[in-house]
Design a protein around this nucleic acid. Sequence first.
DNA 1: CGCGACCTTGAGTAGGCTCAATGCCGGTGG
DNA 2: CCACCGGCATTGAGCCTACTCAAGGTCGCG
Lengths: 253, 253
Amino acid sequence: MAHKKELQGRQVPCQLCPLRKQKVFRPFTSEELAFVMSFKSGEVALKAGEPLFLEGNSCANLYTVLSGLAFRFKLLPDGRRQILNYCMPGDFLGLQGSVMLEMQHSVEALSDMVLCVFQREGLWRLFESHAGLSFDVTWLAARSEQLLDQQLLSVGRRSAIERCAHLLLHLADRVSEVGLSRKRDTIRIPITQQHIADTLGLSLVHTNRTLGRLIRGRAIRWREQEFEILDRDQLAELAGGDDAIPGAVRPLL
Amino acid sequence: MAHKKELQGRQVPCQLCPLRKQKVFRPFTSEELAFVMSFKSGEVALKAGEPLFLEGNSCANLYTVLSGLAFRFKLLPDGRRQILNYCMPGDFLGLQGSVMLEMQHSVEALSDMVLCVFQREGLWRLFESHAGLSFDVTWLAARSEQLLDQQLLSVGRRSAIERCAHLLLHLADRVSEVGLSRKRDTIRIPITQQHIADTLGLSLVHTNRTLGRLIRGRAIRWREQEFEILDRDQLAELAGGDDAIPGAVRPLL
DNA sequence: CGCGACCTTGAGTAGGCTCAATGCCGGTGG
DNA sequence: CCACCGGCATTGAGCCTACTCAAGGTCGCG
């Protein structure tokens, strides 16, 4: 792939992976770490805007996000786009492709990013030899299903302003979970209003006006491609409760 | 639970499970069957309209649908409802509850139904002793994520008539996969227009009018709580292509 | 016979869409 | 150094899809 820069070999030994220091990730035994090491086949670097994989392709790899952001989306034949979710450091990608015949969605980098690469065959070895890690993989799948459930509820049943409030809270929570913002509510992610619109099933113009309402209501601040949450309570009120899932200690492959 | 009728012991030995005869389900080895037998702790019968579990509760059980239909949904505090998906024979339910702290969604029977019950602890035994079955569980989770992706695309980016067309096709395909309809396109499921509306993020009235358009266009027929697909091509055209996922041979726990 | 569940239809409204134009900023090439 | 261009945010105007409120019809059941 011309656009993907393959970095040679293992760059970061898993034991030293900076992500593992974060308290959201459950500690691994050294035996588990050794296996993950052997499972990992290298790293990839991606520039903002580049695709990691595309709908319809088969994808032999699995990935863990080391740094940077991406989003997962689907397109309709005429080009309408629905963003399904955002991928943050620690997220495990490509399970669908390794388990099914072909990818049913695409993933594109939102910022420059680095990912760990695993071979599909390794996944089978993982299941054969490490019950705990297998369980972790399933756990991650179940969790991402929960997030999709929430998103579907939002898009199906919330009004525009409720959707915006809910999404912004959700993003702020996820970002701060993995330590990407020093203050919990100052979010610095390279997201455009078009992304928000495509996430929420709204038009760009209407998204802009709706964010405008939140800005004028002093609930958030928006300055080119990043935002800040000023009034968390107001947003939670609008969103109809804060549905962040607690007990968020999770595995990191 | 007053409303749930617990049937004693194992009613149907897994080897004789009528579902296994269907060609959509991958054949199990007798060793696997024996394990599933030992994993299964009994059956439950549910009457139409009864809940299987509710959001916020913890749920120690896993279920496989033996017969009947159900749907999975979430509610907003003010009562707005979003249906997330439909559960059909062979579907595996409750993974989220077994793997996370508590249920983030509810499930309600659409018709009378019978389900196999498994204990949450058994799942751990399964992962420890049967790599193949563990992989199957993950496979099922990945597949239901794909279905959610499709649904989210629909609700977020399709117009009312496109959503209806897509959903009806999808339901018809799933139902005929598990042999619930003799002709592929005559669907007999006890679904109301309110369910359709809540699945698609539309109001009841608008759903009714939209279905009316499809009926007048001779694409479908609707007679109280069941429907028939008359013109599959027209629906596929409206839906923007048939996105049924091929290679649908799947495991059955 | 009355009631409840579901489907249908009408009328008026509004939330969200499209089209279109403008402003801002950063990068790039002449 | 400046002109131009592309990406993003913003705003106005008009329209239409989908919503709400409301009423009526059918059917099955106690």
